[in-house]
């Protein structure tokens, strides 16, 4: 089998996370924190049902009459549930979903993201502001000490977290039929098509599923999803060191990128893309230490920040 030229190139292999770790709302969060501290990144996975038992997704009922308010908290359905506060801005979108499967996955994945983020930042899940880039990529607003990525399929949820740079994860049923489909025709580079043609018939679908998840993971790490043409970059199925290749099979991205593929829960293929910019970022990612004590102290010494005398009359001109 041909391997990509330059695959043997020099830099020390960047550290990749351990096998994905299964989590429920109960954890084990200390293990997640430890993996993130020690390896710089961690991938967790979860079963849908483990995350829906506390918050059944059929409650509250879907409503198409939601108002234009941006905040879900306290509006419409939800009653005294903790859910609106927990979902924040996602609440409204959640209430407008009509497909029960989609609602369930949406809810469970947001809960998993918030719990995982809260665990590593050592904060409350409701204090995490899960926001979206203009292209849809999720991120933790105001807390870029970790980057996150989310994927879900069937009853599996996967979240990747790194403190080293940017991350992308993607999961797919290993049995999903891609061979001979439009997907096979549309996502492969000429080099990949060539390599796949030489792959044994029985192994070809598995190789395609792996390629697909690697491509999704990479494209999510750079924030582009399906907008980045999947025929513009590729991988070499079977290569020892996985790296991004150009369509003709020559090396693409640099050594700062690393990739991994795992088989999870016996029936899923999960891939990870990770870029480490080399800042050697701090092991400490806790929210409480992110505020620089000395700067905050200097700013709060100012009299105006501790006394509210001579407050202007608040007249709202809007």
């Amino acid at each position: 089998m041909t391997t990509a030229p330059g695959a043997s190139a020099v830099l020390p292999a960047p550290s990749v996370p351990a096998e994905p770790l299964q989590v429920t709302p109960q954890g084990p969060w200390h293990t997640v924190r430890r993996e993130l501290a020690e390896r710089g990144s961690v991938v967790v996975f979860a079963r849908l049902q483990d995350w829906l038992s506390d918050f059944p997704s059929d409650l509250p009922p879907a409503t198409s009459t939601a108002t234009g308010a941006e905040f879900g908290a306290g509006m419409g359905a939800g009653g005294d549930s903790a859910l609106p506060a927990l979902l924040g801005r996602d609440w409204q979108r959640f209430t407008q979903m009509t497909n029960d499967d989609v609602r369930g996955r949406f809810l469970a994945s947001r809960l998993l993201l918030k719990y995982a983020a809260a665990a590593v930042l050592e904060a409350r899940p409701a204090d995490i502001d899960l926001a979206y880039k203009p292209g849809g990529r999720p991120y933790l607003r105001g807390c870029d000490q970790v980057d996150i990525s989310l994927s879900h399929t069937a009853d599996l949820l996967v979240v990747g977290i790194t403190r080293r740079g940017w991350i992308g994860v993607d999961a797919e049923l290993s049995s999903r039929q891609l061979r001979g489909s439009a997907v096979e025709r549309q996502i492969c580079t000429p080099y990949e098509t060539q390599l796949l043609a030489r792959t044994h018939q029985q192994a070809r679908n598995a190789a395609l599923v792996r390629l697909w998840t690697l491509k999704e993971a990479y494209s999510k790490a750079i924030g582009q999803g399906l907008r980045f043409r999947f025929t513009e970059f590729g991988f070499a199925p079977g290569a020892r060191r996985v790296q991004v290749l150009r369509p003709d099979g020559t090396p693409g991205s640099g050594d700062e990128w690393s990739f991994c593929t795992w088989s999870v829960a016996g029936r899923y293929t999960v891939s990870l893309a990770l870029v480490d910019l080399g800042f050697d970022d701090a092991v400490d990612v806790a929210a409480r230490t992110m505020l620089d004590e000395a700067m905050a102290d200097a700013l709060l010494r100012q009299p105006q920040n501790t006394r509210w005398t001579a407050q202007r009359e608040v007249r709202d001109p809007l």
Binding site: V102, L178, A182, E216, L226
Partner: peptide, 29 residues
């Protein structure tokens, strides 16, 4: 949100549209 599509289904859908309406020309997802 309503139909439960995922990325792979989007690719398949666009492919089907192209097949049924060749007049649409190439449809780059």
């Amino acid at each position: 949100e309503d139909l439960g599509f995922d990325s792979l289904m989007l690719i398949e859908l666009v492919d089907r549209l192209q097949e049924r309406r060749p007049a649409l020309g190439e449809l780059p997802l």
